[in-house]
Simulated assay, not measured.
Amino acid sequence: MQAFEFEINAKRNLIEIPPQYKKIYSKHMKVILLVSEKLITKKQQYDFSDVVGKLEWQGDAVQEQRNIRDEW
């Protein structure tokens, strides 16, 4: 299998093969896409703004951390 490399901007979800590669027009090919910018694939994070300030800690936070460490 031969490899040809070129950069091009997709137009309307189409990628045109440049004319200098016309010998591969209408041929079977395997296409590998490399996109330069990172695509957003994270799930949308939960917005906690509706619960901010509604919970209050009762107790000594430092002491609780020490208790948790002692459990190990």
Rank of each mutant, 00 (worst) to 15 (best):
A61L: 15
I40N: 04
R12M: 07
D70L: 14
W72L: 15
F48H: 07
K11V: 11
D47R: 06
A61Y: 13
Q63Y: 13
K42Q: 09
L55C: 05
K42R: 14
F4A: 09
H28V: 08
Q2I: 02
A61D: 08
F6P: 04
E5R: 10
E56F: 08
I24C: 02
Q20C: 05
D47V: 05
H28W: 10
I8L: 04
K30L: 06
Q44C: 03
K11M: 02
V31F: 15
I17K: 00
H28M: 13
K27H: 12
D60R: 04
I32N: 14
Q58S: 00
K23L: 10
K38G: 05
G59Q: 03
V35A: 05
V31D: 10
Q20D: 13
H28A: 15
V35E: 03
K30Q: 00
F6S: 01
K54L: 07
V62E: 13
Q65I: 12
Y25M: 07
R12V: 10
K38L: 08
E7F: 09
K27Y: 08
S49Y: 11
I15L: 09
V35F: 05
P19K: 15
D60K: 03
G53P: 01
K27L: 08
K27V: 03
P19S: 14
L34W: 04
I40R: 05
D47N: 15
V31G: 10
Q2M: 03
A3F: 07
I32E: 14
Q2N: 03
P19R: 13
L34Y: 09
Q58M: 00
F48T: 09
E5I: 08
I15G: 02
I8R: 12
M1S: 11
W72Q: 14
Y25F: 15
F6A: 02
V51D: 06
T41S: 12
E64P: 01
M1G: 11
S49V: 07
I68F: 11
F6G: 01
N67H: 13
K43P: 06
S49T: 15
S26L: 09
M29D: 03
E37F: 00
Y21T: 00
